[in-house]
Simulated scan of single mutants.
Amino acid sequence: MPSGRTATLEIREEGQQVILEPKGDWVIQTITGVHREIERIEDDYDAGRVVIDVSEIGRIDTTGAFLLGRTVQECATPNADWHYLGSHGTARRLIGEIIERVIDCEPDPPEERYGFVQAFERIGKGLEAILHEAIDTFGFFGRTLTTFGSVMLRPHRFRMTPTIYVMEEAGVNALPIIAVLTFFIGAVVAFMGANLLETFGASVFTVELVGLSVLREFGVLITAIILAGRSDSAFTAAIGSMKMQQEIDAMRVLGLDPYEALVIPRVVACVLMAPLLTFGAMMAGIFGGMMVSWATLDISPGFFITRMNDTIDWSHFWVGMSKAPVFGMIIAIIGCKQGMQVGGDVESLGRRVTASVVQSIFMVIVVNAGFAMMYLELDI
């Protein structure tokens, strides 16, 4: 590739003006010799007096525009028309663009490690960020509800195939790990209950302990936490990667609603699969507690099931099941919302995936505490 005409720079003074006459091609291959001349102009002349005559410039790229822009950048109005003479196809516009985007930032002041003011400042910024995040999440939830309502009014727009796919990926494929974890949770509860209750001669109440804890709390809570860690991160990563590659923008250009195509299938799939996964978790947890009771307390599986049926009301089962769809919706909403907020770099994707999992688990535990207080007040 030819290097082109070497860049040169002539300087003349006319009254109060210092006129620069750049000539030749001001591109990265040809400007090596004028760099020191530009530095000398910055030192010797006031930027407010400099005028650039662009009429003799050949080719110019951002490197050449940056060097010429340095001579007027310190002026209060570096892009004023009186700084430029002559005409050129791109030089004037390119120099102006470079001046607007190149900002000399002062170094950050050293951060103080101690001080109550700084501590309260960080706390305030954190609370403000939490408030904005909560508002954005509620706004996303509202947008999702309105989109779902419009889809229900036109059922032919509902995307069944991606919904079934997400149900398999987020639901069916998560069942083994959920079952294994709740099996061991039930076993641990039974083992601890057996050791504690046996000292009081009430080891038979281990059946009630396992049944109540698994049906009301552990089954649905373990399911929600696994969904938050496994499926929620996948939602954020999938939508976030599409956002990074501008596929979501392409969908909007084609007239497709990203909420209708990406968010609604995931929300519906999670709401439908969460109760089924919770039921599987309950069965696995009870089975784990039954095996430990059989091994340590000599409580046969037949007696275990019969006692559960006689002493534990069905309302405890429905308490756990009623939480599952709510948890599924929370997890899907947060995962999709964080995916939609991914920026254009991988670092942003990593931050959003982490925020998605953390926020989902936090909200699941908070909402579960709310359910517990509500059912306590209702005596259920």
Results as ranks from 00 to 15, higher is better:
Met1Leu: 04
Met1Arg: 04
Thr6Gln: 14
Leu9Trp: 06
Val18Arg: 07
Ile28Arg: 09
Ile31Val: 15
Arg36Pro: 05
Tyr45Gln: 00
Asp53Met: 04
Val54Gly: 14
Val54Cys: 14
Phe66Pro: 07
Arg70Met: 01
Thr71Asp: 09
Thr71Ser: 11
Thr77Asp: 15
Pro78Trp: 15
Tyr84Ile: 10
Gly96Pro: 04
Arg101Asp: 13
Asp104Met: 09
Cys105Phe: 06
Asp108His: 08
Asp108Ser: 12
Tyr114Arg: 10
Tyr114Trp: 10
Ala119Met: 10
Ile123Tyr: 00
Glu133Cys: 02
Gly142Lys: 11
Leu145Thr: 05
Leu153Trp: 12
Arg154Cys: 14
Phe158Val: 12
Thr161His: 14
Met167Gly: 04
Glu168His: 11
Asn173Pro: 08
Leu175Trp: 03
Ile177His: 00
Val180Ser: 00
Phe183Gly: 10
Phe183Lys: 10
Ala194Pro: 03
Ala194Val: 09
Phe200Trp: 08
Ile222Leu: 14
Ala224Glu: 01
Leu227Tyr: 07
Ala228Pro: 00
Ser231Leu: 04
Thr236Phe: 11
Ala237Phe: 13
Ala238Tyr: 04
Ile239Asn: 03
Gln246Ser: 03
Asp249Gln: 01
Gly255Tyr: 02
Leu256Phe: 14
Tyr259Leu: 13
Ala281Ser: 15
Met290Ser: 05
Gly302Lys: 12
Gly302Tyr: 12
Asn309Phe: 09
Asp310Thr: 02
Trp318Lys: 09
Ala324Ile: 00
Pro325Gln: 06
Phe327Tyr: 11
Met329Asn: 06
Ile330Tyr: 11
Ala332Gln: 05
Ala332Asp: 04
Ile333Gln: 04
Gly335Cys: 00
Cys336Pro: 05
Lys337Leu: 12
Gly343Arg: 09
Ser348Asn: 13
Leu349Trp: 01
Gly350Phe: 07
Thr354Leu: 12
Val357Arg: 10
Ser360Tyr: 02
Val364Thr: 08
Val364Gln: 07
Val366Phe: 13
Val367Leu: 13
Val367Pro: 11
Gly370Phe: 02
Tyr375Gly: 03
